[in-house]
């Protein structure tokens, strides 16, 4: 099918301000938007800069706005968009460095701020084997272990657009993953961090995060569970 692809362009070494380049191309409805951008690089304009790696939705490199909504470019097919006019822009709320590449540092700083790692100083089992965990205990936090840190959620969040100091949904998801892990001992610490000024209370449940998550994580639900744990002081 014939499509019209508009791509956000900005080269900091040449451009004063961003522009959109338009490409008319013949594509397969089963093509990924990432494929279209690769066609641009191969056949139209090789200077287009974007991040991509695994190309099937597990590495989290290519989160971008497609027709105004966050997706992984490798997980949205042309036919899913239901139109032959496709506009691709960088994710919103992080500084654009070049074309579709944004500065991810603030995002990873927020991630780091919630202690995203297992903390348990208790002695390991004497037999050197695994710490036991029932299937139910594992399922309690399994959903939030799926996060690939692509930033599609955080950059779809109205609270993050208006204040980049907000830790954002991705960081809360990763805190949730440890808070509700029966093997972790620092849930209280994380809840105190998330109870602060830039923590969970900035969430206004606009729900864009959950809609944007390419891994189908129930993000708003996870945030609500963290809010509840902060309020009750009980991790259950």
């Amino acid at each position: 099918m014939q499509i019209k692809l508009r791509v956000f362009r900005f080269d900091p070494e040449r451009d004063q301000k961003p522009r959109f380049d338009t490409f008319m191309m013949d594509v397969d409805p089963n093509d990924r938007v990432l494929d279209l951008l690769e066609y641009v690089k191969a056949d139209f304009d090789s200077t287009l800069a974007l991040r991509r790696s695994c190309a099937h939705g597990v590495c989290g490199s290519d989160a971008m706005r497609v027709n105004g909504r966050n997706y992984l470019a490798c997980k949205v097919l042309v036919k899913n968009l239901g139109t032959d006019q496709i506009t691709v822009e960088p994710i919103l709320g992080l500084k654009v460095i070049k074309d579709l590449i944004v500065d991810m540092k603030p995002f990873f700083d927020h991630y780091r701020s919630v202690l995203p790692y297992l903390i348990n100083d208790d002695p390991l089992p004497a037999d050197g084997k695994e710490r036991l965990q029932s299937p139910e205990q594992q399922l309690r936090f399994e959903d939030t272990t799926k996060c690939i840190l692509c930033a599609a959620c955080t950059t779809s969040c109205p609270s993050f657009w208006s204040d980049a100091n907000y830790v954002g949904p991705a960081a809360i998801v990763n805190a949730h993953r440890f808070i509700f892990d029966s093997r972790d001992k620092a849930g209280g610490k994380r809840l105190n961090i998330l109870n602060e000024q830039f923590g969970v209370w900035r969430c206004r449940t606009a729900f864009n995060c959950t809609e944007a998550c390419p891994r189908d994580i129930h993000i708003t639900q996870a945030i609500a569970e963290v809010k509840r744990a902060v309020n009750t002081g009980r991790i259950e």
Partner: peptide, 24 residues
């Protein structure tokens, strides 16, 4: 990078679903 411009771009331009409109 948060600015009034980003915020308005997002509020108006982001094609959020029911939750987004309910929030606004």
């Amino acid at each position: 990078m948060s600015s009034i411009k980003t915020t308005l771009t997002g509020y108006v331009g982001y094609r959020g679903r029911e939750g987004h409109w309910a929030f606004l």
